[in-house]
């Protein structure tokens, strides 16, 4: 009997490298929320790195082969594939998209991984699972502590919506899926200008100066729009906005003090998951004062 049979919805799960280290609170809170909502989640055994940006930057075939290998491993676990990281999500879906369209590339990749690529395995971002599969109505019903009065800047970044034919998640220039989830759990999404701008992504390693400019613009835009905090769905965006925030403040002289939550942390908080199971203590910019002020802690 499948271990997930007791759940109406259950998924195979690809956490990706960051969720086992710098973004461990995203992993912890994902499991916390899914458990609270009675959604099954089973990690794909022995998954590999998806190759992220560096692989496709210099070697498309390798990048496609790494993702194809992961899809093939995921094929052995029941349920659609739930992905938390926006970059892994984008790479896995790009691979399916390119290989469906191009037989030559598909054959090269099949040779590289020595097996077929499960192009039919559905790859879904957590946002999609919460908003569409589980559904906004049920999510609203699961709320125990609405995020009343919490002004949230929903930040999509690049890869959740672009290029539109790959993620097939929402409108690429005017998405609403994050705002809809936040409204369902009682929060207040703010209107702001930089929800789809790039944070600087993996230049955080090679050229951190890029992050100081791009992520500063995002923080400034959120602050100017009156947001109390930012919500993200990508570990790289989180690293740049949260871990580098103090450095950005020192470089620009502007104080933000802006907690950066993962979507699963905020949904979890609203659905009554214990803060201990949401990894709030791992955030570099502490959310404690803000959450106490809003009576959420």
């Amino acid at each position: 009997m499948s271990p997930n049979r007791k759940f109406a919805l259950s998924y195979s799960y690809y956490p990706g490298c960051s969720l086992h280290a710098s973004a461990k609170e995203y992993d912890v809170s994902t499991k916390g929320v899914f458990n609270a909502l009675r959604i099954g989640l089973k990690e794909v055994p022995d998954w590999f790195c998806c190759g992220a940006t560096p692989a496709h930057n210099v070697d498309e075939l390798l990048s496609l082969a790494l993702c194809a290998k992961n899809l093939s491993l995921a094929g052995k676990v029941e349920g659609d594939l739930a992905v938390a990281c926006a970059a892994c999500f984008s790479r896995l879906k790009t691979t399916q998209h390119r290989l469906k369209e191009n037989d030559i590339k598909r054959k090269q990749v099949e040779t590289a991984i020595d097996g077929p690529v499960p192009l039919g395995k559905k790859v879904k971002h957590l946002l999609e699972i919460l908003a569409k599969d589980f559904g906004l109505d049920k999510l609203e019903g699961a709320v125990q502590k609405p995020l009343t009065g919490l002004k949230i800047a929903c930040y999509y970044g690049c890869l959740l919506t672009r290029p539109p034919e790959v993620p097939e998640l929402d409108d690429c220039e005017a998405p609403t899926i994050m705002e809809n989830v936040i409204k369902a759990v009682g929060g207040e999404p703010v209107a702001w200008s930089h929800r789809l701008e790039c944070c600087g992504a993996n230049f955080t390693l090679s050229r951190p100066g890029v992050i100081l400019k791009l992520s500063n613009e995002i923080l400034a835009s959120a602050k100017d729009a009156g947001a109390d905090c930012i919500m993200v769905a990508c570990p790289l965006c989180h690293g740049n906005l949260d871990i580098r925030q103090e450095e950005i403040e020192q470089a620009t002289g502007r104080r933000y003090g802006m907690p950066v939550f993962y979507i699963t942390q905020l949904v979890g908080l609203a659905c009554g998951v214990s803060p201990l199971r949401l990894g709030l203590e791992s955030m570099i910019v502490s959310p404690a004062a803000l959450l106490r002020e809003k009576n959420l802690l």
């Binding site: 490298c17 960051s18 086992h20 280290a21 710098s22 022995d46 998954w47 590999f48 790195c49 190759g51 992220a52 560096p54 692989a55 930057n57 210099v58 070697d59 390798l62 790494l66 993996n202 230049f203 390693l205 090679s206 050229r207």
Partner: peptide, 26 residues
Amino acid sequence: SYVQLANRLFMENIRTYGRQYEMRLA
């Protein structure tokens, strides 16, 4: 050269460990 170095190390990490170890990479 820095971006290329970062890319090269990233790929070497995948080949050696199968996954990315951020601390080692940095």
